[in-house]
Design a protein around this nucleic acid. Structure first.
Lengths: 361, 361
DNA sequence: TCTCGTTGCTAAATCGGGTTAGCGGCGGAT
DNA sequence: ATCCGCCGCTAACCCGATTTAGCAACGAGA
């Protein structure tokens, strides 16, 4: 049906040389192997005229490579995270002429095994094991022979695999500083976790690390967390409930919500209580979910750098693939990607402080 | 480094037969070609014991296939759409032992060309050309020789390519009926497009089709649209502005928002005006964006069936790949995937109708 | 004139599997 | 005993590239 692909043999014939000669010229080893300039030019011209493109499958068979990397995640669809992470990985891979296989395991070990097998069967050159929320994962044995990078995940057993993660501790500091810089010193409450380090939803790495950063920055400024409410699940309804409960007893000056969905619930509770954001209560949050710029006032939040995480994972993977031996002692490296503050409209100086002019625009 | 892959030759040796014999047995053509039961069993056992898996790259070289399909979209990350669509495609492909290459063009024709080339180089067996919002697209010439399906898109020139799209017209009917069934007859306003057919954002297929369905269902019930506001862009702020403007002159009984982001803006405008959803004003919408079940009251909306769209596209693609000749006369088929109503909390009988008991729970 | 060394290219093997043609061996018919 | 034909398997080639080993042709030195 389709006009048959142009093969190396066609190019060789057109240039009047043998197939290996054409191969040598096109792979750039012509000079080194003393192919004459004249022949090289003929081959190059023929390849150009015939629009020759090497068949990657064939090269793959010979060399054992595929110019392809596998991106395996537990869930692709659940969160917006996935999209941008994949986009970043996609573009970084494309820059190097690589394609991406996508697969998802849905947390099912058997599915994961099958998927890794399928990727192995297709001779992927490397693997990215991604998690949609930061957590520790058990690294399947089957990845051993392949260059692999963990994305948004840490190995359960200290395996010699590099990991790429958002810098959640620094994000906690950034969120706290956003309030401090606005002049807040009192009445800062946490929604979603805290105030103590042990008040975190089980298994949530992000909660722990954000909390560490928050407490650290606040502590440096000699500011005490006024209180905190743990949410078992970081969904709007839990943020609503926790904030509502908080408001029964105290009137906070500022809220650090542990993510945007919680913040959305908090907004509702504050609105129900007749409290205005940011005039009565400032709110900062984490994630930069699309919702953050939709709700009024727009939410100031510390963004998960999904796109950069994806890119970084590919970058790290390529240092593995290119097999720089000097890199082998950095095998288990953890790469932290900065989480930038998206300063929007939900933070203002506290009302009394505003009077004394301590606020910033 | 890694223990070399088990090849067919290894299996043949272990079973004490030649390579072709092993190949015949494993490909199931053993019976047909009179391989003895004894030999067949030996081969099967050896393959099992050695955990033999055929190298797909090798098979690909010989047969020209790769058990892989390419999923090319204009943008992966921008909307949640992508994630579920990809998930559906992924699972449908996996059911058949196929993998997915993901690529995005960002609307750039040159990037698209490169991407299709890269997929072609890897001998993908078929192509899905997806758009993140329903629209007509120019089909690149380079896809001609390959089985191809358009997803969420229609060919600009009536090409002989099947397309998979959400059934937006029926969705319009469903949304309208949700209000009719609740007893609404008057004061139904449109936000985002309408009331006339020409009041639609340029280039939006969804707007046109939804409007057709809405007007049709309303017309059948002899109900007139009370009014409508076009939004140039379907974002919350435009929904807010349009609804606010509407409320300056009239007091609607029900709103049909052309999508959930607009509905979110409408919620805010209604809240600002002191109107309660659904008691004062019922709201229905389209898309079933995650936001729809986060806002209070939960939004009744007609869902974009992203997951099913992805699955369906792969299903249709496989009828192309399997090349059922009977299917060749259905080449240009447009497959419509139903959009289900997610009945939640934003629709109630109109207040006067409620008194007469015409409402449903 | 013969040998040795370059130079410039190609024959042949290889990757891992699929496919076709055909080769020995055995049994039945003549 | 001889021939035919079927059974059961294998030799050999193919896909499209890369890579190693080595072959001609030519010039220079002995």
């Amino acid at each position: 049906m389709s006009p048959r692909r142009v093969t190396l043999a066609d190019v060789a014939k057109a240039a009047g040389v043998s197939r290996p000669t054409a191969s040598l010229v096109l792979s750039g080893r012509g000079r080194e192997l003393r192919i004459s300039e004249d022949v090289a030019q003929r081959v190059l011209r023929a390849a150009d005229e015939l629009q020759y493109r090497p068949n990657i499958v064939s090269v793959g068979l010979r060399t054992g490579t595929s110019r392809t990397i596998g991106f395996v995640s537990d869930t692709v669809a659940t969160s917006r995270l996935a999209g941008d992470m994949i986009k970043g990985a996609l573009e970084a891979a494309r820059d190097r002429g690589f394609m991406l296989f996508i697969g998802e395991t849905e947390g099912d070990a058997e599915l994961e095994r099958l998927l890794l097998q399928a990727m192995h069967d297709r001779q992927v050159d490397g693997l990215i094991l991604a998690s949609m929320f930061t957590r520790t994962i058990k690294v399947p044995k089957s990845v051993k022979p392949m260059p692999t990078v963990l994305l948004n995940a840490l190995p359960k057993q200290p395996a010699a695999l590099p990991a790429v993660l958002p810098d959640e501790v620094e994000a906690g500091r950034v969120a706290a500083r956003a309030l401090l810089d606005a002049g807040h010193r009192d009445g800062i409450h946490l929604i979603g976790a805290g105030p103590r380090m042990r008040d975190v939803p089980p298994g949530s790495v992000a909660a722990v690390e954000r909390l560490v950063g928050i407490r650290e920055a606040l502590g440096e400024a000699d500011v005490k967390v006024a209180g905190g409410r743990i949410c078992p699940d970081w969904q709007p309804e839990h943020g609503l409930a926790a904030t509502r409960e908080l408001l029964r007893t105290v009137r906070p000056r500022a809220l650090i919500c542990l993510n945007d969905r919680i913040a959305m619930g908090a907004y509702q509770a504050l609105d129900d209580a007749g409290l205005k954001v940011p005039d009565d209560v400032s709110v900062v949050s984490f994630d930069d979910h699309p919702i953050a710029s939709w709700i009024r006032p727009k939410l100031t939040t510390v963004a998960l750098p999904h796109y950069e995480l994806g890119r970084k994972a590919v970058d790290v993977l390529f240092t593995e693939i290119d097999g720089d031996p000097a890199a082998s002692d950095r095998k288990g490296d953890v790469h932290r990607v900065p989480m930038p503050l998206r300063a929007r409209e939900s933070v203002a100086p506290p009302q009394d402080a505003a009077r004394s002019g301590a606020g910033s625009s």
